[in-house]
C-alpha cells in the first residue's frame, strides 16, 4: 500500500525532478565546447542574464506567447461548440463522435503537419481548388506565414481542448439548465450564466493543455511557418544545435518551464476552489 502511494512520487522524481535538476545544473554552468559533454558546471546566472537582456530572445518570447495565446483562444472558440455538441448528442452516439475527435492521433503528428504543407502550398490543394473554382486566380500562399502556424497549432491541439471540455460538459446536471429555463432564462442566457461558468474548469484545463505545448512548439512553426515567426522553440534549437551551447539552451528550457508554472499554479488553485465548492 505504501508502495502504491509512493509510486507517483517515484515517477515524478525519476522522470521529472531528476531531469529538471540536471537541466538546471547545466543552465547554471558554462559552455565548454571542447569537452564532453560540452558543459563546465558551476553556479552562474549569466545564461539567464543573456536571455533577458538580448532583445532577440525577448522578441522570441513575445512571439511565442502571442502565437500560443491566439491559437489557444481560437482552439477554445472552435473546441467549445464541438465539445458542447458531443456532450449533448444522444448518449449512444457520443463514443463515435469522441473517436472522431481522437482519430487524427492514429496518424503520426509529423505526417499530419506535412499533409498541411501539401494543402497550403503555393500549388497545394487549397490553391488548386481556389483557382479551379475561379474564386481567386492569384490566391497567394498561406504556407510560410504566421497564419499557417496558428492553423497548425489549432489543428494539432484541438483534441486537447475538446476532451477536457467534453468531460466537464458531459457531467453537468441537465436539470440545472431546466431550472434556469424555468426561472426565465432564454437558452443563451442559461448558457452564459450556468453552462459556461460550470464548464470553467474544463476551459482552464483545455487552455493549459493547448497553451503549454504551443509556447514551446518547434515542429509546427518550423514546417508551416515562415522565417520571420521566431518562436522560443527555434531559439532553443539554435542554441542547442547551431551554437552547441547546452547551458544557454538549458536556460531557455528552464525559463520556458518557469513561464508555464504560473498558469498551472493558477489552474491548481482554481481546481482546489471548485473542489471545496462541490
Amino acid at each position: 500500500m505504501r508502495f502504491v502511494i509512493a509510486l507517483p512520487f517515484l515517477w515524478l522524481g525519476v522522470f521529472f525532478l531528476l531531469p529538471f535538476a540536471l537541466v538546471l545544473a547545466i543552465a547554471l554552468g558554462t559552455n565548454a565546447p571542447d569537452s564532453v559533454p560540452p558543459v563546465e558546471l558551476g553556479i552562474g546566472l549569466k545564461n539567464f542574464a543573456l536571455l533577458f537582456t538580448d532583445d532577440l530572445y525577448l522578441a522570441a518570447w513575445l512571439t511565442s506567447l502571442r502565437v500560443a495565446t491566439t491559437s489557444t483562444l481560437v482552439a477554445l472558440l472552435l473546441g467549445y461548440p464541438m465539445a458542447y455538441a458531443i456532450a449533448r448528442a444522444a448518449p449512444e452516439r457520443r463514443p463515435l463522435l469522441l473517436m472522431l475527435v481522437v482519430l487524427p492521433f492514429w496518424t503520426s503528428f509529423l505526417i499530419r503537419v506535412y499533409a498541411w504543407m501539401g494543402l497550403l502550398d503555393e500549388n497545394g490543394l487549397l490553391n488548386q481548388f481556389l483557382r479551379w473554382s475561379g474564386i481567386a486566380t492569384d490566391p497567394g500562399t498561406i504556407l510560410g506565414t504566421e497564419w499557417a502556424v496558428h492553423l497548425g497549432i489549432v489543428y494539432a491541439y484541438l483534441p486537447f481542448m475538446v476532451l477536457p471540455l467534453y468531460a466537464t460538459l458531459e457531467k453537468m446536471d441537465m436539470s440545472l439548465l431546466e431550472a434556469a429555463a424555468d426561472l426565465g432564462a432564454r437558452p443563451f442566457a442559461a448558457f452564459l450564466t450556468i453552462t459556461l461558468p460550470l464548464s470553467l474548469p474544463g476551459v482552464v484545463a483545455g487552455c493549459l493543455l493547448v497553451f503549454i505545448p504551443a509556447v514551446g512548439e518547434f515542429v509546427i512553426p518550423d514546417l508551416l511557418g515562415g522565417t520571420e515567426t521566431l518562436m522560443i522553440g527555434k531559439v532553443l534549437w539554435d542554441e542547442f544545435f547551431t551554437n552547441a551551447d547546452w547551458p544557454l539552451a538549458s536556460a531557455v528550457a528552464i525559463c520556458l518551464l518557469a513561464l508555464l508554472v504560473g498558469p498551472i499554479a493558477l489552474f491548481q488553485r482554481q481546481q482546489a476552489r471548485s473542489l471545496e465548492r462541490h
Binding site: N31, P33, D54, L56, A59, T227, E228, T229, L230, V235, D238, T242, N243, A244, D245
Partner: peptide, 16 residues
C-alpha cells in the same frame, strides 16, 4: 564559440 554565437545571432536577426 563567441564568433559562432555572434554569427548565429546576426543570422537570426537578419532572417526574422
Amino acid at each position: 564559440p563567441e564568433q559562432t554565437r555572434e554569427r548565429t545571432r546576426l543570422w537570426t536577426a537578419v532572417k526574422t
